[in-house]
Nucleic acid binder design. Structure first.
Lengths: 337, 337
DNA sequence: ATAAGTAGTGCAATCGGTTGCATTAAAAAT
DNA sequence: ATTTTTAATGCAACCGATTGCACTACTTAT
């Protein structure tokens, strides 16, 4: 039924070993033999069975990306999708498949299956899935992995790739200061998350470097909804010493703040400036359009896959990669002094 | 190094066959033996090697989802992501991995690899990748597959799952008519695409059933940008016999139209009604919020995976699945007569 | 009491490749 | 002309499971 290496061997009058060597092309084979084998392979429409190769090679030739089922929200956003696409691109060009899976509370987790049953040669996982016990398992097994985002702990012991969040904040702050804004509120997400911490750190640093003392009460934590951001902005704008700019940790927050500022009829960008992390297409369609910190998550995904492949192929040193951000100025900060 | 079935067998004083039978649990094994084997497996921390199982079973225990690289846009949208999540969920609960890959123009395409090298037991692919030659290959090999969307041809010969686009349009039209709108423009995407054709068909049918003759010049094709939709709406609204409602094929189009209507200072929903396909979170945050035709692509993905699994497990009949849509009424059509 | 059936297990082949070692023939060195 | 080296290929074991068939020891039926 299926054509095997032995069928080719027989028809070409050589041994299966020779056929195998031709397929893999890393032994010296005479041109004559090689050509004959190729001809026969063509004739019989032969395709090597990857299941057999995998077993013989002890490798699945697959990378796995593990999703945290609780992160449904972030799984849905296009940044995440772009990094998947980046990962897949690198995997494919290196002859690896990409497996996508998600953690499930009960029973053996998919991660453990991937590791112990050799379903993947390496895995990429989000910081939210990192636990001490998982890390120990991975390190004990010397199982290649890279964290897609700076991990909450053991940051020096594991491979990770991330956006340069601190630099993103800094570029935003510097931009706002250049535009003459002086009193900036940072509206971020859960402060337990490393990326938020880093953004706050960058925010403070940038202010400090310009001789401005960052105010603790101007660093706000918000949930992901537009409403929460709206309320936050309203309350700030109604203070006796209101801020003159907002740095938002994502587009949804920015939309809420934008709405609040407009509802109070403060002029953007004249009175109030807004900068936001992420640069979804919609950021250019709001009125006014939003100055955004662009984050190239496709590139991030490529890096993640690349580091993982390197780790699989030869145990390299631990690698940390920070992908820089880029500020796109739009109307929401476009004022002249 | 690695613990195999033979190690277990030896330590438990049985044959490898017995261990295998215990693992797969489909043979009668005495409780005594089974317990001993489980104990030894536990003790030695045994995990069956899936590569070996795959070879022996002649199956990769994987489904593959193929992306069309040219569809980057749609790959990025959250609807697509939701269907991936649905597919993955069903795959995982049935013990299958999900492989994601994308087509590449040169060389053997990933699809062919999946088929011929047995990297997957079945594939899910978008209509945009369907060609006669690919279909022939798949059908010749009796390779299980399902199309994620109604295919452009041979619709009766292949498995496919899709949103009920016609019904979506109908529900929107009926809703608009109930609300007293009489002159509806359909702004869709590329009319070569089946889903657009179906939406138009549903649009016409619903009007026809209510005794309204659909006007050909009220069925418009637009590209995916907000600007194009904006211009379309402006030109319609400036006609001598302007429409009083728009049915938009996606949220981006709706945003453009919304902007146009507001810029001409026509009241929504009093003068102009808007309904849109898709129901992204943003649709509820616009002003006014948008009446939307909700499409459950998570469910769609689940169906796709389910049909595929059925096809893999036992050659069932061709299946076509249409997932119904649901209208969420919001402010953009919320007027009283 | 003998035949027939059944539960529980082992043997050995098999899935389809890969690869270390041995072998042969031809080329290069002495 | 003999020895050493090198190129090209084959042999057979191996990767780690699965499974059809055979066998043994009991039950159950006749």
């Amino acid at each position: 039924m299926t054509v095997t290496i032995r069928d080719i061997a027989k028809k070409a009058g050589v041994s299966p070993s020779t056929v195998s060597r031709v397929i893999n092309g890393k032994s010296v084979i005479s041109n004559e033999t090689r050509n004959k084998i190729f001809a026969v392979m063509e004739e019989l429409d032969f395709h090597p069975n990857s299941l057999a190769r995998n077993l013989a090679n002890g490798s699945s030739r697959a990378l796995a990306l593990v999703i945290n089922a609780e992160d449904k929200k972030s799984f849905s956003n296009q940044y995440f999708t772009h990094s998947v696409f980046g990962i897949e691109q690198i995997a494919q060009t290196n002859g690896y498949n990409l497996i996508i899976t998600h953690n499930q509370s009960k029973g053996m987790t998919p991660i453990e299956q991937l590791i112990y049953e050799k379903k993947a040669d390496g895995i990429i996982l989000p910081p939210s899935l990192i636990t001490i016990s998982l890390l120990k398992k991975l390190l004990n097994q010397k199982f290649p992995f890279v964290v897609l985002g700076e991990p909450p702990f053991m940051r020096n012991e594991v491979n990770w790739v991330d956006i340069n969040n601190a630099q993103g904040s800094e570029s935003a702050v510097n931009h706002l200061l250049e535009k003459g804004y002086r009193s900036i509120v940072f509206v971020g997400e859960n402060q337990q998350q490393i990326f938020t911490k880093n953004r706050i750190a960058g925010f403070r640093d940038a202010l400090g470097k310009q001789g401005i003392e960052p105010r603790q009460d101007f660093i706000i934590e918000s949930d992901g909804t537009q409403e929460a951001a709206y309320r936050i902005a309203i309350s700030f704008l109604q203070k006796t010493d209101p801020p003159d700019a907002f740095l938002c940790s994502d587009n949804t927050i920015a939309f809420g703040i934008l709405k609040a500022v407009k509802s109070l009829e403060r002029a953007i960008p004249q009175e109030i400036g807004i900068v936001t992390f992420d640069n979804y297409p919609l950021a250019q369609y709001t009125e006014p359009s939003l100055t955004s910190i662009d984050v190239d998550t496709y590139l991030l995904g490529e890096h993640a896959a690349f580091v993982l492949l390197k780790t699989i192929e030869n145990e390299t040193n631990i690698q940390h990669i920070l992908v820089g951000t880029k500020l796109f100025q739009r109307e929401s900060t476009d004022r002249n002094l």
